[in-house]
């Protein structure tokens, strides 16, 4: 790790942020979760066959700017969001947290995830992959400017929909 990274942010601080985020998402405190994001944040789930692609040229599974992301939260809180009613139970395991680098004010960080998803009348579905984050300080607080959830599965297959926030 280079010294500039160590000077800007510690891994412990990044881990705290990721663990807090996982907890808020698993407990469906989505408005609180939005508070962890910058005002220009983006959320991506690339397609399984093009995990490294750019959403401007490639059809993703999810490519939300902050406007649509806030709308996604409105949708998820609505009982007419049938794919998430009743709400899934999810449990996230976050590991291998690393600071990947710093470019100006942007801190890149990565982590592995396993997300179990349980629903009434449904299979237990396990989402495995890694996150790539861009973080930025806003008023001294570390916030999420971009989160990219990259699945290892070759296709969604029986994972079905990504209707919760991965």
């Amino acid at each position: 790790m280079n010294e500039m990274v160590a000077a800007t942010v510690s891994r412990a601080e990044v881990e705290d942020l990721f663990y807090l985020e996982a907890d808020l998402l698993d407990s469906w405190r989505l408005d609180d979760w939005l508070q962890l994001l910058t005002d220009d944040a983006a959320y991506y789930v690339p397609p399984n066959d093009k995990p490294d692609a750019d959403a401007r040229y490639t059809l993703f599974t999810i490519a939300d700017d902050i406007v649509r992301l806030r709308e996604r939260v409105i949708r998820l809180k609505d009982p007419n969001c049938h794919a998430e009613f009743p709400l899934s139970r999810t449990r996230r395991m976050i590991g291998n947290v690393r600071i990947a680098g710093v470019d100006g004010e942007v801190i890149s960080a990565a982590a592995n995830f396993i997300v179990h998803r349980f629903r009434h009348n449904d299979l237990d579905r396990v989402f495995v992959g890694h996150y790539r984050y861009k973080l930025r300080r806003v008023g001294g607080r570390l916030k999420i400017a971009e989160r990219r959830a990259i699945l290892d599965a070759q296709q969604l297959g029986l994972l079905g929909s990504v209707s919760f926030i991965l």
């Binding site: 789930v45 959403a55 401007r56 040229y57 490639t58 059809l59 993703f60 599974t61 999810i62 490519a63 939300d64 649509r68 709308e71 996604r72 949708r75 969001c81 049938h82 794919a83 998430e84 969604l156 079905g160 929909s161 990504v162 209707s163």
Partner: peptide, 26 residues
């Protein structure tokens, strides 16, 4: 134009869209 097309696609269609997952549920 391409970005606009893809954005419009994802709002409705596909496993992460605002509509298709509810079709799947139905």
């Amino acid at each position: 134009q391409r970005a606009r097309r893809l954005h419009a696609f994802l709002t409705f269609y596909g496993p992460g869209g605002f509509a298709t997952p509810d079709d799947v549920a139905a």
